[in-house]
Design a protein around this nucleic acid. Structure first.
Lengths: 196, 196
DNA sequence: CGCTACCCTTAAACTAGTTTAAGGGTATTT
DNA sequence: AAATACCCTTAAACTAGTTTAAGGGTAGCG
């Protein structure tokens, strides 16, 4: 009904402990909406990460670049997801990561200071972000496990199952980088999996 | 001074928001101390994980077993660390993991129900566990990155730097499984790195 | 329109890491 | 004291995934 720019974010919190009116107001006054173009960066290596960003629309990748110049995708974030280099944000140290828009996007950003304010004054945010992070931790652990115990083909197939929307939206190059293989090898894998 | 069995745990929380007397009492009445023998399990595949465990002494490994019967170490936990299959604990689903003592150990355990009680009645626990999980998330992300962008030798060397105590305490087999290589290959690596 | 920049594929040569097999050392159990 | 179970190493054959190179497709842009 309302077309408040926070509508999606407020709904997002309903999965956890839903926000009361005063929490919504406190949140609202501390959030900045930003439109981001394709290929624009939310974060670049060497900078300190300043924001926790909620993705309202569009899609991002977070990656590092190794000494040889190759990119390694750590995470994608699309609608209704969060993205940030938490380590850099918390410890205020330069990041080793990039966060870049793969598609034009709209994000809602909270600065570290404002996030701390919310944590201190409204314990519900501690709770909600604890659960959000726990879910991310669980997913990351599952992924690390897969990296150790599955072949590239198995990892590809389970990526497709888990993120069917992303599988169509993203170029194969990006998926290969997320799976930890070269685009050439991913191409071979896809071919073999068809011939079965 | 005090030899209360919770001394270490109370000190542990001093890194974050230190506990007040009433929080300590609430915690104390909800914690169970258990002595664990070498090779004894805190969790086995198929069981629902019931506890969040604080390691007071000794050392554990958390691992999965693949279809071929190989173990893959996801994490070690020694003194002053936490261990649990958070996914299984939260969602009350059967775990795919094992948690096994590598050395005789003493743990302080909190059940899910008691943890929920503490979260609801003392927001400080939400805060403290949020930060604990965030730190674990950061470390896990770093490790995944390394898995993608470094050779086994580089990963071995940074494991040694990061956990010098564990490097001496643990058999190489266990370290190999944590690094995601075979014990045979780790042995070759160590040899080559000496000859330089 | 033609140009440039991506993106995807194929294939051959290569390499990091596995598999299999064997032998020796040293705790732990009997 | 012998037996069993781990643990570590070496080495040769193998394989999953990389590297390099080349060609073709297509979308955005001057």
């Amino acid at each position: 009904m309302s077309d408040s720019p926070l509508e999606n974010l407020i709904d997002h919190f309903k999965q956890y402990l839903p926000l009361e009116e005063e929490e919504i107001l406190a949140l609202k006054s501390r959030i900045t909406e930003r439109k981001i173009k394709r290929r624009q960066f939310l974060l670049q290596e060497g900078d300190v990460c300043k924001y926790f960003s909620y993705v309202q629309s569009g899609c991002f990748k977070m990656y590092s670049v190794d000494e040889k110049g190759f990119e390694h995708n750590l995470a994608f974030a699309s609608e209704d997801d969060w993205i940030s280099d938490i380590g850099s944000l918390h410890k205020e140290i330069p990041s080793k990561l990039y966060i870049e828009a793969i598609e034009p996007a709209v994000v809602l950003q909270i600065s570290k200071g404002d996030l701390w304010y919310l944590y201190t004054n409204f314990p519900k945010f501690d709770r909600n972000f604890r659960v959000i992070i726990e879910d991310k931790f669980i997913a990351l652990q599952e992924r690390l496990l897969q990296t150790f115990s599955s072949t590239a083909l198995e990892r590809y197939e389970s990526f497709i199952k888990q993120y069917p929307q992303l599988a169509n939206r993203l170029p194969s190059t990006q998926i290969a980088s997320y799976l930890g293989v070269t685009p050439e090898f991913l191409s071979r894998i896809k071919n073999e999996s068809l011939r079965k």
